[in-house]
Amino acid sequence: MLAVTDLSKQFGGFTAVDRVSFTVGKGEILGLIGPNGSGKSTIFNMISGTLTPSGGAIAFEGREIGGLAPHRVTNRGIGRTFQIPRPFRRLSILDNVILAGFYGQGRHSKKAAQAAAEQALDLVGLPHDPHAKVDGLGAAGLKKLELAKALATAPKLLLADESLGGLDEHEMNQAADMLKRIRRETGITIIWVEHIMGVLMRVVDRVMVLDHGEKIAEGPPSHVARDPRVIEVYLGTDTQAADAAQTRIA
């Protein structure tokens, strides 16, 4: 469904992403992890059109999308969430999602957008109340709204820049289960970016690890978690912590 080949991004002399290649199959949940500054968000921003790649190709359903404007990428069927939720505070919660439903699906009718919005709000578990304001939402609620906005655009591929930092353990698990449920109910393909390994490993089919803009490991979670390079990057050389992390994943 998505094939990324030798994708690179330079900011001046700094290489943020260095010839990264990967594919995502239909219906798959791919986890994308790595420490802060490893290039995860840069890859995301190149796929979603916010950044233009310096090199390489991004093919979505067989067509090149690298360098396309963000709204066109959305209209092709790639929805995204932002790491820090970016709701439109001057619109109600429902209107936020209706907007995404209307413009994300090629501006058909407000009625269809409304239906798409209500469906998306149901999926994430937010109420349809037309008067409910964004300001009434907490951190977890804002993440749900962010997800609902992306889902309302009827994506075939969802780029979830989840970053569950700021949520408590219970909320993290809820968020992870939600992504799983969304995949089950809609059949959407998901790329999930995260820098906390634990929760992600429970949900994804396959995981890709980045460090300093390079891919250092890829495979099923259980396999990747045992990779010495991943352990080194992620947990340093503290073997006790590494063991602890592995038991948690298992």
């Binding site: 979603s48 916010t50 709204h71 959305t74 439109f88 994300g104 906005k149 992306a150």
Partner: peptide, 19 residues
């Protein structure tokens, strides 16, 4: 809706599919 969204955050509006 689109213009309210744009006035707050152009990137987020574009991500929602707004030209």
């Amino acid at each position: 809706y689109a213009l309210e969204a744009i006035s707050e955050d152009e990137d987020a509006a574009a991500a929602a599919g707004v030209h």
